[in-house]
Amino acid sequence: MRNRRMKYLGIIAVLLMLTFTACSGKKDNKTNDNTNKELKQSNVTDSNEEDNTEPTVKTDATILTVGDIKVPYNEVMVYVLLLKELYEPNFTNVIWDYKLDTGATFGQMAREEVLNQIIQLKIMTMEAHNFNTVLTDDELIEIENYANEYLAGIKEEDREKYGIDYDTVFKICKDNFLSEKVFDVATMDVDTSISDEEAKQVTVYQIEVSTASKDKNGEVIALSDEEKEAALNKAKKLLKKVKKEEDFYTFALSNSDDSQVEYTIGRGDKSDEYIDAAFALEEGKISKVIEDESGYYILYCVDSFNEDATAQKKEEIISQRQDEAFQKLYKEWLGNYKVKIKQEIWDEIQF
């Protein structure tokens, strides 16, 4: 299980990282580095000490009821420990007190995602019979192996502290496996036919002459008309120069306002003007100067049809269609089940 994370546990981690990145305003490839700096500069103290506080509730106490299924405290703590294992090595334990733009802490956001995903898992397992979906004997054996491996990876003190045993982990693994099968069956009628044109990806090198800047608060400031004209003249001069160069990439590295030169893109990734020009280029050809709202661009076509990226994009489109179909279905299911939370026990769940 360490090598193959349970699907819905992984979903929680992905959702949290996407939320964290969006809410904290970090959209570049240095998210972790920048976030670590902010955490160190914040007023949150990293004690680097183990949390030795004993839970004040029984570890098998029911914390949540979904339909007829009762979810105990120790089951929830498996999810909590997983997230701690995923995040604290990179961000330390101060991550949980980090304030998001929403005003909530990352720990509060994590608690909500854990709750929502557990509810979803339980409802999916209860809906399994409507799809005649069950786990096979081979799958149960596989789950047993995963459960043993996963349990072995949990610290002994955490197992004792939170009452986590084999049965606890086996139940979680079983829920995840069954839910994944339910998802597959429930979305099996989704249209998976994607044309090459719809998913088409091309690879280009670019030279950018930006027509916008940012103030100290990160707000975009448009250039004046005179400055834009100067930027256009610069782009035209660069176009003349690059046509004489043998190596577009090296020239772009030294003359582009964007430090990234190579892009593999499709519809929706850039402006229509940019994409139309990129799609019209033949391999080895250079575009004219392209203008959009963020700048002037000169493109060089590296691959007019990137087969691997196009195939990956098709999978992404199919996955998106499946997720949309499932969420619509799940919204209906959710209305059929009563969910009860024991708030005083839920409040014990902290990161």
Rank of each mutant, 00 (worst) to 15 (best):
Y297Q: 00
R111I: 02
D308I: 10
S213W: 10
K234T: 10
F279C: 05
I265F: 12
V242M: 11
Y249M: 11
E262W: 02
T45G: 05
A235K: 03
V14D: 15
A222E: 11
N52V: 10
V66W: 13
E197H: 11
E160C: 05
A278R: 00
I12N: 05
K313N: 14
G67M: 11
K285P: 07
D272N: 14
D101R: 12
K27W: 02
I141K: 08
E38F: 10
E293I: 07
L135W: 06
D46S: 13
G295I: 11
T133I: 12
M1C: 09
D51W: 04
V202N: 05
F177V: 02
V94Q: 00
L16P: 03
Q322I: 00
S224H: 02
I265D: 12
T133H: 02
G163K: 06
I69P: 05
V190Q: 04
M6S: 08
T125L: 04
F177E: 00
E324K: 08
I123L: 06
E113V: 09
I143D: 00
E139M: 08
L151D: 01
D184S: 11
A311S: 13
V339G: 09
T125A: 06
F351N: 09
N233W: 00
K7N: 09
A325R: 07
K340W: 08
E283R: 01
E180S: 11
E112C: 10
Y150N: 01
I345N: 01
K161R: 09
L232I: 06
E88K: 05
K174N: 00
A231T: 04
E227M: 08
E144W: 02
T192P: 01
I63L: 06
E139Q: 15
F326A: 01
D276A: 14
R321N: 10
Q108W: 01
